[in-house]
Amino acid sequence: MKTTLLRWGLLSLLAFAPLAALRAEPVIIVHKGLEGQALDPATVKSVLLGKKVAWDNGSRVTIAALKSGPVADGALKAAVDQTASQFLNHWRRLAMTGGGLAPKSFESEAEVLKFVAETPGAIGFVDSTTADASVVVVKAGG
């Protein structure tokens, strides 16, 4: 009886393991040209808040932001401790007062992924299930 229960337990674990691996979570993505750059949480936060405007390889930072939704909220909460609305206000304050270039704003994760993949120096955030090999994936919040 004990052996049967153990077998069932192992089978259950094996059956659910792939689902766990696919569990959705927001991730930071960057252009492939930034592979090897320092992408620690402090750097990502500095970039997303407009304090660091150029990468160490000299390319200009371009932020691709999802307008709203749980992925935007989750990624921004983890990376900069702000809601999507607070993040938008932060950038409105900067962009409207000479303090920076506002993020490019997108409706869908697919658009963010495409933009980041095609734009040198770009950084954005999508769900882990959306990210693919066209970009470098960094866990939001480290």
Binding site: K67, W91, A95, M96, L101, A102, P103, K104, S105, E107
Partner: peptide, 17 residues
């Protein structure tokens, strides 16, 4: 301009209210 902090015109960004 679909809701954002500014709109892009080429490399430039334009905003207003």
């Amino acid at each position: 301009a679909p809701g954002r902090a500014a709109v892009s015109v080429g490399e430039a960004q334009v905003g207003g209210f």
